[in-house]
Each structure stands twice: as C-alpha cells, then as structure tokens.
Simulated assay, not measured.
Amino acid sequence: MTIITLGPEGTFSHDLAQMMDSDIILVPTISRVFARVLDTGIPGLVPLENSEAGGVTATMDGLMQHPVFISEERYLPVHHTLASDTPLDKITVIFAHPQSHEQCSRYIDDLGVPVIHTESNAASAHAQKERSGSAAILSRTLAERSGIPVLAENIENNPDNVTRFIVIRKDPGIEEHPEKCSIIVDPGENRAGLLYDLLSPFKETGVNLTRIESRPSKRCMGNYVFFIDLQCEGNWKEAIERIRTISRVKHLGCYHLTGDNPCR
C-alpha cells in the first residue's frame, strides 16, 4: 500500500508509516496531506490526538473542511528528546511544535528557556541548525537523521505518552460489523440544553462515546462543532439518525480498530 504522510523522514508520522509496511510519500504539512489525498486518491496518515496534548488542530480542521473519510486508526507511543549542538547551559531558545511543547511542558518550564513554535518537528530541526545557541524538541530518529546531538531523552511529561493516528481516504470504505464510527456534529446554534439534546440519543440507545471534542465553527464567536467517536454497539445507527433531526452531521466513516491503544 502507498500512503501519504507528514515528512521529512524521521517524523513520528513517518515512523508509523514505516511500521505499516507502506510505500511512503512525504509532504511538509498536514494540510498538504489532505490536499494530496484528494488530488491523487492515495490514502493519507495523519495524527488526530495525543494523550497529553489533546486534539491536533490541523487534522481536525482538515476533517471539517475536506470531503475525506476515516478508514482505520493506529496508536504510536511517543518519546521526545532535546537536541542541540550547544551545551545545555548555553541554550538561549528552544524550537518546538506546539504539540511537542505541550507534551514536554514540565521539562521546558524547568529549563526556563524561551520557546519558539514551529509548524512541525522537522521545521524545528531546520530552525535549530540555522540558529546558533538554540535547541529543538525532536524524536531521536529525527535528531539522528538531522545530525543534531541529543542532550536529553524521554523528556515528555508522561512516560505513557501516546498519539492516535488515522488513515484518511477520498472515498468511504465499506466495513461490515465496524467497531467505531466518527462524526462531526454541527448544530449551527447555541442554546440552553443543546449539548444535552445532542448526547441524549447515545445514552438512550446504549451507545458508548470514546471521544467528544469541540472546535470553533469558524463562523462566529460562541459557535462550535463537536467531534464525536462512538462505539458501534447498541442502536448506534438510530442514535446518529436522531441527531440528524436536530443538527447537521458529517459522517467521517466507520472502521475496525487496527492495533491496540496502549493506554487501555
């Protein structure tokens, strides 16, 4: 299988794609992964959420904006390093992707060094090499590929740090007896009892939700959409149809679980 994912070589996305025994096409940003999937029909691999830092904004925005579907999920334990060609006590600035920063916030706070955010770990590596006296938060693989010495390992807040990835496709898959479904609920309003009305159908039909997260609708302040993952149990199809009567629903797909969540 060929898959499109975030590069360059050494990113966590690239590491996972290699484990999937895939031919890999690397692109520089998550938004480019979505664009290439739509242009080529080749599936893409993107990070969706992290056990420490929560949802990945670029992926959630891509799911909102583009006609793509989720066909499977994967989990990857994530460990970070501090890499630099400068001694630790001489570092004046750290380059880090916002997700990496949040996952390593305690270590960074203890250092007391200013942080500059980048669009990817790969961009952090490039920025470090361009600026003397700097360091970067990277995977060990990326630090080694970039030729940047590792000063500290496993600096993440939680030793059980895990990122959930999804495979996105241009066309919906057809799964018999799926285990999980993902939807985006866009009520288009803000009123008393709204969230209760959206969640009640799941309770009343015996459906367990494994994730619910809100994102701004990008229309106006105070207007949100909800990302919901649900287990395919009980009368889950009825629950989704009941929500359709009171809200817009974007069906992202139903799929089998591929790989185990190590946090379970």
Score class of each variant (00 low, 15 high):
N235W: 02
W236L: 03
I24C: 11
E233T: 11
S214K: 10
N121I: 09
N223S: 14
V185Q: 06
Q231T: 08
P159T: 02
F69D: 01
R74I: 03
E241P: 02
T118F: 09
A136Y: 12
G253P: 05
T11I: 02
N261Y: 02
H126C: 11
H101G: 07
N50A: 15
Y255F: 12
P43L: 06
T258R: 11
P178W: 05
E213I: 07
R191L: 10
G44K: 05
E102G: 06
A83C: 01
I246G: 06
S100T: 08
Q18A: 13
E73R: 07
K203N: 14
V37W: 01
R215K: 11
T40W: 07
G55N: 06
N208M: 11
L16F: 09
A135Q: 11
V56M: 06
D61H: 06
E233C: 10
A152H: 13
G173E: 13
L6R: 09
T81Y: 10
G222K: 01
F202N: 03
L199W: 03
T163D: 07
M19I: 12
C104P: 00
H14L: 09
A123C: 02
S22P: 03
M1Y: 12
Q231D: 14
C254N: 00
P262D: 09
K218E: 13
S214A: 15
L195H: 11
P114K: 04
I70R: 01
M221A: 12
N50C: 09
R32F: 04
P67F: 00
S71W: 03
H117Q: 11
L82I: 07
D260L: 09
N158C: 08
H80L: 15
S31Y: 02
R145D: 10
A192D: 15
H79R: 12
E130C: 06
R211Q: 12
C254I: 04
K170Q: 15
L198F: 05
I42A: 10
Y75D: 01
I155E: 08
L76I: 08
